[in-house]
Design a protein around this nucleic acid. Sequence first.
DNA 1: TTGTAAGCGTTATCAT
DNA 2: ATGATAACGCTTACAA
Lengths: 331, 331
Amino acid sequence: MTISDVAKRVGVSAITVSRYFTNPEKVSADLRERIALVVAEFGYVPNLAAGGLASARSRIVGMVIPNISSPIFANTIQSFSDRLSLHGYQLLLASSYFSRELEENAVRAFLGWTPAAIVLTGHFHTDATETLIERASFPVVETWDLQPQRKPIQVGFLHRDVGRDATQYLFGKGYRRIAFVQNSGTGDYRSLDRRDGYTAVMAEHGLEPILFAPTVLPQLEAGEQSFEALMKRDNPVDAIIFANDSLASGAILSAQRKGINIPEKCAIFGFGDYAISEKLSPSLTTIRPPAKEIGEVAASCILALTGAIPQDAEFQHLNPLPCELIERESA
Amino acid sequence: MTISDVAKRVGVSAITVSRYFTNPEKVSADLRERIALVVAEFGYVPNLAAGGLASARSRIVGMVIPNISSPIFANTIQSFSDRLSLHGYQLLLASSYFSRELEENAVRAFLGWTPAAIVLTGHFHTDATETLIERASFPVVETWDLQPQRKPIQVGFLHRDVGRDATQYLFGKGYRRIAFVQNSGTGDYRSLDRRDGYTAVMAEHGLEPILFAPTVLPQLEAGEQSFEALMKRDNPVDAIIFANDSLASGAILSAQRKGINIPEKCAIFGFGDYAISEKLSPSLTTIRPPAKEIGEVAASCILALTGAIPQDAEFQHLNPLPCELIERESA
DNA sequence: TTGTAAGCGTTATCAT
DNA sequence: ATGATAACGCTTACAA
């Protein structure tokens, strides 16, 4: 069943039915009703590939995220997808697992659909990806990070500042032997930016940075391993900043089982504010990133730039999106 | 840049370049190399909309899941997407929030792309969706559940049996005042199936079912609320089956803070085997659903049916996919 | 192994 | 407000 079939049934030309779908207000009310009837009767669904070919546009938005299992990105995807689908846009999703090559593959695949926009995580791409998005005739949005003087729209915050804030907070509380535990998954350069913020503050205070990189993979276990290793040192640490709340939760749960007092024996600081963090004993002091907001703002940018919503807001001004330090019991 | 432009540069006709992409083995090695060169040089990306229109096929697979934030579904999406992308398929994702109407919208939107397949969660659809998938000329896969005598391919297990198993397990351990706590989010009829398994077993043993439906929304808090309410009863329960591990975790974390001994005072049983469940104190006894396997098998079915991989396996025979009861400390 | 011609279902453009 | 015609870029079917 094609648009012409519908048109014949109604007794109009195909282009009128086409207008009914794209610009209903340009079709008379009478015709609108009659078309709606036929469409409903036959369950006609427009062929989007044909429309996309003819108009060189589509309502597909491609998104590449490191993975969908992380609570951090899940919230961004969800809010992004929700806002877009409200306006008839569809989400083509791909995972990069922090690999720039997989990201490039995904971008290439998206390109074939003449997408309305593409959303990437961060600004660390292959040269080929960089070329592809430079040439792109549609909006490209980078999320979860900010890099000065980059062309693409960026919706995020400075991870270095987050690392600084966490360290300053602990320093202000009197901690001096502060360690930083990296993400056991490789390739997350944003957690390395947070680490750099940490080492910078440590240096400013004349303190020596203590870095630990867990060797095991499940995050909770990696947190456990890191915690144990750092407590076992000749000169044990008195506070640990973890690259994310999963690692930090692993440490807290491990301490709990062993009867180690937190924060007395060692303060624990996370990143992410996952649902569990508030409920742990002790509850986890952490930084809440604007995960949901990133998705919403990214969607709004795209909708504004494609004309789906009025373009009154200059979304760039929203940057950096605010992170919130949440003081709880663990630090 | 179109396929004809590439063809001109190489000095062949467009169809040869087309073959290079779809059936490389039908193009001479010499030509293959020369085409590859030009493609790389100009960064040519085939227009998928045009190809889809001409062939009435696409490598888009539409998937509707209740939400992507739940650890349960996240694993399914991830494994599904990973396997499909290995074969050049792309994932169009939509959330239903357990709403059949939203599901229908998503299916309609997918249809316009002449997708290679559509994957739904469960078998509870609107009549219109039912009609749409009956008429579909591509595979439709229903995941996370089994319903006898349904036409679509189903990849899942019987939730009623899961509810039965949990209850029998607790009964075998000597518990008699067993309660079931439903999902605070509405519309998850699979958790109601598990509940029905529970009530059936209770009835078989002449025990009265005790049902509780939390009124608050965040799962951890709903679990807390449920736990407190069930312990406060005149005749307190001695075991609780929760609709999922988040609710159960909320109960365990709450008990921990209050110094209530689990399982002595009350046994806790979950569903889902989330990452945290193993690490709680006490660790959570639960049932591990085949989340990852569901995604993998669903993908394999689609790949087999579309001819991307050999069709030697009769995937239906894999059903029901096995759940595993994981005995830990909480029950 | 390669090519020719037609057509996929829609929308842009220009008319009326 | 509605219509005629010509693309859009690719693949199918058939031919050589």
